Simulated assay, not measured.
Amino acid sequence: MIHLSAFADEISSDLDEQIAVLQSERIRYIDLRSVWGVNVLDLSDQQVITVKQKLEDQNIKVAAVGSPIGKVPLDSSFEEHLQRFERALVVAKMLGTSYIRLFSFYPPQNGEVDSASYREQVIQHLREMTAHARAANLVLLHENEKGIYGDTIDHCVDLLQSINDKYFRAAFDPANFLQCNQTPYPDAYTALQPWLEYVHVKDVRSDGTLVVAGEGGAHWLELLQQLRQDGYDGFFALEPHLAAAGQYQGFSGPDLFRSASQALQKLLQQIGWKYD
């Protein structure tokens, strides 16, 4: 059965308010990206324990760590970034999730714009992180995102084929593909389907306005039907960005988040796809 999750910091920075809205929407999973205005990787051990206990008390589980790993220029210190990545592994273990979301690096700050010239370095960094994740029995979810190496369909396929590891999989974000002038369905979906492990839910119109699923150009109804036909049984993580979309996180607020949740659930109910 598929599961609904959410980047709940889109609701509020306050954990209690996040939990209250998730409960009102009957969402029992969370993609933990930030709490109390603090990025998940910057939480202390005690804060992580507190978050986990509060969630467990309300029967909410952590679906994934929504880390910012890989959202740095390629020529920044990889040694320092790898230490931050190690923190992501620790936090994922503490929270009881098998998944860590990450990205595939911004171009070097030196102005190099030919992606072919730094492709090998991207793959080398991701291979090293995948090896660490494999040793920890954790799965890395690469999100396609505008501006990073893996922002287009071809580059995503290149990464997934080159790394070729069950611990490095695709987090499919249709709206992000649209923002890169790529066609999410059927083109991106068909290309990434062999590695698809996770789905992020947002939508965008041709003028760039972010909207609830089904009101933009992502063809959510057709995509959901195809996912169901292909036997997808993972998470759908709401990340609507309806009020603001920043480099490291978006925001919707409680009311707009509820609208996004209800739009997705209505589409799932429309095709008779059961979820929890």
Rank of each mutant, 00 (worst) to 15 (best):
A133Y: 02
A260T: 00
G37H: 04
R33G: 04
Q270A: 09
P184F: 12
F172C: 02
A213G: 10
A133R: 05
S67I: 09
A20G: 01
V122A: 04
H142R: 07
G150L: 00
A243T: 12
E145G: 02
M1D: 06
D154L: 14
D57K: 14
D165T: 02
Q124R: 13
W220G: 07
Q58L: 03
A133N: 00
G111P: 12
G111C: 06
S162Q: 12
A213F: 01
Y106T: 03
Q53V: 09
L242Y: 00
A131Q: 15
A88C: 05
S98C: 11
I27T: 02
L32A: 10
G147M: 06
H142G: 08
R119P: 00
K54N: 06
P107M: 04
T130E: 07
I100K: 10
H81Q: 15
L89D: 06
T209D: 00
A135I: 10
L178S: 13
I163A: 13
L15N: 14
L242I: 01
H142L: 14
L268C: 02
S261A: 15
L55R: 08
P194A: 00
F168T: 07
G246H: 13
A8T: 05
Q229I: 08
S67N: 07
L196M: 02
Y167A: 07
D57H: 14
L140Y: 04
D75H: 02
Q58W: 02
P254I: 06
R228Q: 15
I27E: 11
D31T: 05
V211A: 03
H132T: 03
Q83Y: 07
R28F: 11
S261M: 05
Q265D: 02
R228H: 15
I271P: 11
S115R: 02
F172W: 09
L256V: 00
Y167E: 15
P194S: 03
V204H: 03
T190R: 11
D203E: 05
V91G: 02
Q124S: 15
L159N: 01
H155E: 13
L140I: 00
H81L: 12
F172A: 04
F177C: 09
P184E: 07
Y248P: 07
W273F: 13
K166P: 11
E143L: 03
L55T: 01
A237M: 06
Q47A: 11
R26P: 08
A20R: 11
M1A: 11
I60T: 02
F172L: 00
G253C: 11
A8N: 02
Y118M: 12
N181M: 12
W273M: 08
L192F: 08
D165G: 01
S76K: 08
F105C: 02
T209N: 07
A63G: 15
K54M: 05
L32R: 03
